[in-house]
Amino acid sequence: MLKVENIQVYYGMIHAIKGVSFEVNEGEVIALIGANGAGKTTILHTITGLVAPKSGHVLFEGKDLTKIPAHKIVYLGMAHVPEGRRIFQQLTVLENLKLGAFSITDKVQIEKNLNYVYMHFPRLAERKNQVAGTLSGGEQQMLAMGRALMSNPKIILMDEPSMGLSPLLVNEIFKIISEVSKDGTTVLLVEQNAKKALSIADRAYVLETGNIVMEGKASELLDNPRIRAAYLGE
C-alpha cells in the first residue's frame, strides 16, 4: 500500500535521512521506533510532502507522492496526525473537525465521519463548542486524531501520539489506535514509547540516526535483547 524507497533528506548540510526504505501493507499497524532525533518525524513529513527528499520515492497505491503537492495528498486517502498535535488553537473543536473533512464535499459523509469520531472520542462531542486551545493535552491529542479521521483515510500516519501524556491517557490513546485499525484503517505509528508501540504493532522498523537498523515482527522485537536494552530500558 505504502512503499518508501531509499529516501535521502537533507536539512541544509545535515544529512537527516540516509537512504531509508520500508513498506506498509493494507490493514497493518506498523511502528517506526527510535530515539529522539533519529529522523522519525522527518520520514512522516517526507511522506506527506511537508519536506522534499533529495532522492528516493514514496509510493502510495502506485502513485509517487514526492511528485504531488502536500495539500493534495489527503485527497488520496492519507491522513497525518503531526507531532505536537498542531490543532487550530483559536478555532473550536467542531471547527477543527470540520477542517479535517476539508477534502470531502459530501455533507452526509462528513456527518457520518463526525459521528464515527464522536463514537471513539465522546469527550470531543461534549466539548465541541470549546476553543481548542483550552483543551487539556490528552484532549488535544484526541482532537488531532479525530481531525485526521474526519478525512476518511485509508492510512493514518501518527507522530508521537503519547508525547506529554500521563500513562493512563497513553493507554486510552493506544486503545483507540487499535480500534481504528480494527475498523480497517492502516496505521503507521511513529513512537519513542517503544514498548507501547510494539505492543499494538504488527511489524516494526527501528531507526537510528537516519538509518533503519532493524526490522521484524513486533512480538519478536519485543523479545530481542538489543531492543530490550536500548529502547525498553531493561
Partner: peptide, 23 residues
C-alpha cells in the same frame, strides 16, 4: 469553507496543507 481555510492557514500553514488546503 474558504474563510475557514484562511483561518487555518493563518494559524498553521503546514497543518492546513495536511487538511487539503491549497496554501
Amino acid at each position: 469553507k474558504s474563510g475557514k481555510a484562511m483561518q487555518a492557514v493563518s494559524e498553521d500553514r503546514g497543518a492546513a496543507q495536511l487538511m487539503g488546503i491549497n496554501v
